[in-house]
Amino acid sequence: MEEAELTTRLAGYIAGQMPQARDVAISNVARITGGASRQTYRFTLSWTEADGVARQRGLILRRDPADSLIDTERRVEFEAYRAFHGTGVPVPEMLWLEEGADALGSPFFVAEEIAGFQAGPGALWSSPYLETHAILGARKWEILGQIARADPTALGLAGALPAVRAEDCWRRELDHWEAVLDADESEPLPIIRAAIRHLRANPPPPAQKVGVVHGDYRTGNFLYDTEGGVHGVLDWEMCHLGDPLEDLGWSFNPVWFFGRGMPGGLLPRADALAVWEQASGLRAEPEALKWWELFACVKGQAIWVSSARAWMDGANRDPILVYPAWALINAQDRAALHVMERL
């Protein structure tokens, strides 16, 4: 869909959601590049209230592409954002969710834009951000601890996300991502297959609690400022119920070290662990955490090979799908070797 048509149809949709408003219009539509699982646009919504007051608001549109890097239900992402809005975990406000294709050709949601902050990790490696790594890193793992501490039932997420027993968390996730590898890998992966055999032969203990798992909590998926503050945790499309150690393991995946030798490129591992344990009230038992760190390598590899598959099948030729396949598949193999202490 061309941008002009998208603008017209989106304005029509939003006008239908705001029956009290007049002169609903959309301007400044701009695609935000970089997202591989959803097409993301920022735009300005302007309207006139019933009392005649003219208003404007910056908003975000997240729309499903023909084939995305991660196959997920957009309702999961929408409900996760909505559940955490107004809590200590900063997230943008969700406004409208549309699961059908009538309005814009594919499912989408519209959310508040949190403007004025960085999201991509590229800016972090130079001043003024370089000097804030300790603060930003502490805040990053504090928020992850808060997500782990959260009660899914109190948040209203227990009914929105599939239930899982504490002893089944690991198996459900490993089964899922191994099946993705089986379906999508275009080249055999001996290192990751060895990792999967190791994980199955040495399962972790049951989860200390079944909590909310963000699913992709890493540097690059939150909005940060020049003072080390975090203003929005993004990309909840893989959110599910499970073992909170899963998120911690994913945040320790060496592909997110950015060549700086520490988790997220931000904080020494021991410091990140201490912050997370304090904020979550949980303990990261070393062997259990190691299991989830190796699992993170399997999950990462499944996502990267899916990205290659999506491009190769031709359903989505966005070059963003090529990047992880080329740049991260061998890096993820190396990360698995690192976690298994063979590199």
């Binding site: 001996p190 290192i191 060895a194 060496p254 592909v255 997110w256 070290f257 950015f258 060549g259 740049a327 991260l328 061998n330 890096a331 993820q332 193999d333 190396r334 990360a335 070797l337 690192h338 063979r342 590199l343």
Partner: peptide
Amino acid sequence: DIWRELVAGAERRRLSGSPV
């Protein structure tokens, strides 16, 4: 021996900008 070759293979395929 297999593990040695898997490590060597990952080393051969390493790109200059690899994060790991």
